[in-house]
Amino acid sequence: MSERLSAAFRKNRAALVTFVTAGDPSAEKTGDILDALVEGGADVIELGMPFTDPMADGPSIQAGSLRALKGGMTLKGTLEIARAFRGRHPDVPLILMGYLNPALAYGPHFARDAAAAGVDGLILVDLPPEEDAELGGALRGEGLSLVRLATPTTDRNRLPAVLEGASGFLYYVSVAGVTGTRAADTADVAEAVGRIKAETDLPVAVGFGIRTAEQAADIARIADGVVVGSAIVDLIGENAADPATAVRNYVTKLSQAIETAA
Rank of each mutant, 00 (worst) to 15 (best):
S174V: 13
A15S: 13
A116E: 14
Q62N: 05
D185L: 03
Y172R: 12
L75R: 01
G209W: 04
P129K: 04
L146F: 06
L170H: 06
E3K: 13
A150T: 10
V92R: 08
Y106M: 09
L159N: 05
A22G: 04
R67W: 00
M1T: 11
P90T: 13
D35N: 12
G141F: 05
G225V: 12
E3W: 11
M97P: 00
V147P: 01
A36G: 11
D185G: 07
L100S: 07
E164R: 14
A262G: 15
A68R: 03
N101P: 15
R83P: 01
Q62S: 04
A27N: 00
F85P: 07
A68M: 10
G141I: 08
I222Y: 13
A220E: 12
A262F: 00
L135V: 12
G31T: 01
D57S: 07
V204T: 06
G23N: 04
L235H: 10
V226A: 02
D24G: 04
E238C: 04
D201E: 12
S60R: 02
S26A: 11
D185Q: 10
D224S: 12
G137Q: 03
D201C: 00
L202Y: 00
T52E: 15
A190R: 14
N239W: 09
Y99A: 12
T252E: 15
V147S: 04
T52Q: 13
I222C: 13
G118Q: 06
